[in-house]
Design a protein around this nucleic acid. Structure first.
Lengths: 247, 247
DNA sequence: TGTGGTCACGAACACCGTTCTACTCCAGAA
DNA sequence: TTCTGGAGTAGAACGGTGTTCGTGACCACA
């Protein structure tokens, strides 16, 4: 009766009319809490939050659940499937505002910032977001919300659709890069990632083949990381100015 | 006398004043061509070009060189190091135009397009570009060239530096996503990636919770993939309009 | 001719995702 | 109450990964 993992995955991509099957069944005697998809997702999130996406392994999840790796495959098709479930739940937690035509830019930036913060909370998970198919219902929900904001801002539908793609892609890429740099800063003792002042010193010490990089070493290394995020989002959204429907 | 792989890596990041050591040493009797860093890079590129970045394995490279995996570690520190070498050589092949203040936008788009085409020629290799440190001299050369174009366009240095980051990040992300979709289209027989018409049909069949996605299914799936690339680049570069130095 | 050092390579270690197969345990039928 | 079937669990194993260790061959030079 309970659907096989493959069926659940299909439902996730096709139509959300599934019965949801949220009744977490457990034995009355409570001998040992049975493995559920939700339990798998929870422990997976815990691992990623603590040790990063690189550490997210089927074996690690199974060990945290005090079982063997093979037990997971009764609930999850794949590691790829697990990734998709994680991205889905992450997207499900995003607040989508009611579009306000007078404030759509700030609203849009707010959604992107929520996404970024969630991605950064689980370092490296945006790598899984790259692989997530666009037909997943949870990610589609976020896309729909962002599309609504763009349309409320009077952006022409075709430009809105393409800008949506660009924004989502940038948020993913930004989060992935920040996560990678952070993890290398934390993990390696004497790794190749260097601090800002060291990077600036190194830029200034470059040969004369790099005149602009040398001269503007200060600007190149200036600004906090979130500053750059806001800057780029502004860049893209302001670039949409020419694509207004009423223009 | 010949530098250890670690020393070569350090030289790659610190100063390009190294003697280059391009003399591919080989035995006069020519019993068997010795393994060189260049030979490793060449065969690695071949593998990625033919079978994608996922197939790039130390063992695969070693097998193509008719040796064991451990033989590579005398010339290359790591797989990460090999990745960096690949990105470096790829960047070394990029043509950087002499900045023309009247044509800097087209020139900049041209450089980005070159990067994209190289990334797409070696599917999935942009994943390695994400991990490449910005202190690599070859990637720095490309950054320098793009920075020169932005400055020639009269963009304020700080905005130019941040826009540079944003552009490079977007090109990487775009290439990675396109590569992933392509590989899934080619590899899986009945995979989850669906064609455009099927995706549009599925969008149109969504429940009423997705009104905008339903209504604009045509726009959402319209346009070729390179069209979207040019659109986003234009978005970002046009958004720079307000950051002109002379404005 | 000897010798030292560089390089190559087979074997092994610890991991990974995934599958096969046996086994437990409980719900429902007789 | 007993039997039976099936769902869920788990151990062992397969083929793959990056990386290291120790051994061995080879060539340039003293």
């Amino acid at each position: 009766m309970s659907p096989t993992p493959q069926e659940r995955r299909a439902a996730r991509h096709q139509l959300g009319a599934g019965p949801n099957t949220s009744g977490a069944r457990r034995g009355p005697g409570g001998r040992r809490r049975p493995i559920t998809v939700d339990a798998i997702i929870d422990t997976a999130f815990g691992i990623v939050e603590r040790e990063g996406y690189e550490a997210l392994t089927m074996r690690r999840v199974a060990a945290a659940l005090e079982t063997g790796p093979s037990s997971l495959y009764a609930h999850v098709v794949n590691k790829e499937d697990l990734d998709e479930l994680l991205i889905g739940r992450l997207c499900a937690g995003i607040d989508l505002p009611e579009p306000d035509p007078a404030d759509w830019r700030r609203q849009l930036i707010g959604v992107c910032t929520q996404l970024r913060d969630q991605y950064l909370r689980y370092p490296g998970i945006s790598r899984a977001a790259f692989a997530a198919a666009p037909s997943n219902l949870d990610t589609l929900r976020v896309s729909e919300g962002m599309l609504a904001l763009l349309l409320a801002g009077g952006i022409e539908p075709r430009a809105a659709a393409w800008a949506l793609d660009a924004l989502v892609l940038y948020v993913n890429a930004y989060s992935l890069e920040v996560s990678m740099v952070n993890s290398r800063l934390a993990g390696g003792e004497q790794h190749w990632v260097v601090g800002r002042e060291e990077l600036m010193r190194r830029f200034a010490a470059l040969p004369d083949t790099f005149p602009h990089t040398k001269r503007h070493a200060a600007e190149l290394t200036a600004g906090t990381v979130p500053d750059r995020f806001d800057f780029t989002l502004g860049l893209m959204i302001d670039g949409l100015g020419g694509a207004r429907r009423d223009a």
